[in-house]
Design a protein around this nucleic acid. Structure first.
Length: 206
DNA sequence: GGCCAGGACACCA
DNA sequence: TGGTGTCATGGC
């Protein structure tokens, strides 16, 4: 698995861009999310203030490549309004909170669920938390390590309890699992065998 | 033409 | 509390 190497995942240029991407990527292919973010940049509205000022229908049009654009436009509006009302658009103040508090704060915002909240904590706030997405659970199930209907929390705990609490490791793990999931878990899952040690040999042996 | 992609929410039983 | 429907683009 060393061939996969560091993934440098989530190529956002700023924490706010990562937050926007986390919402846009819900049930969407990243290639389309990139296009939506490019549209926001081209219109110069990729900022809390910019997203508040742009009319919702126009915002929806700009992010249309990222599927469910009307719903996601509402979610982005909810996010930037919450940022202003609760933190005065000060991301540093938001991200200075403890992980547990930060997570519950994010979950209170319309449109931010567990995976989106954890993605923001890991990739924008750069705090050590494990992101569990569809690929992660799919791979774990295929490996027979968990049942197919494992809860988000249970799967997350499995990683958190067996890996050192290091932002970089969780970052690479998530990225590698998605790449691995794309590579082996769709066409012929039963023809591929792998284990966590293949992905990260330095992981805790706990 | 059908399926899938780095989910979340509302509604109902 | 859990299951189901809805959202609704673009590439292969």
């Amino acid at each position: 698995m060393a061939c996969y190497g560091p993934q440098h995942w989530w190529p956002g240029e700023s924490p706010f861009e990562v937050m926007v991407g986390a919402i846009l990527t819900q049930q969407a292919a990243w290639i389309n999310v990139e296009q939506a973010i490019a549209n926001l940049k081209a219109t110069d509205v990729l900022s809390p203030k910019g997203l508040r000022q742009i009319p919702e229908p126009e915002l929806a049009r700009l992010i249309s490549p990222a599927i469910y654009h009307n719903t996601k436009a509402k979610k982005l509006k909810a996010l930037v309004n919450w940022l202003r009302e609760s933190y005065g658009d000060d991301l540093d103040r938001l991200f200075s909170r403890e992980i547990k508090d930060l997570r519950s704060e994010l979950l209170s915002v319309y449109g931010i669920g567990e995976e989106t909240a954890d993605s923001i904590i890991l990739y924008a706030a750069k705090k050590p938390i494990c992101v569990v997405d569809a690929y992660t659970r799919r791979i774990m199930a295929r490996l027979g390590m968990v049942s197919g209907d494992i809860s988000y929390h249970a799967c997350q705990s499995l990683f958190m309890n067996n890996l050192p609490a290091d932002t970089q490791i969780f970052n690479e793990y998530h990225a590698l699992l998605v790449q691995l999931g794309k590579a082996v878990c769709r066409p012929h899952p039963l023809h591929h065998k792998c284990c966590l040690a293949d992905i990260c040999p330095t992981a805790s042996k706990k």
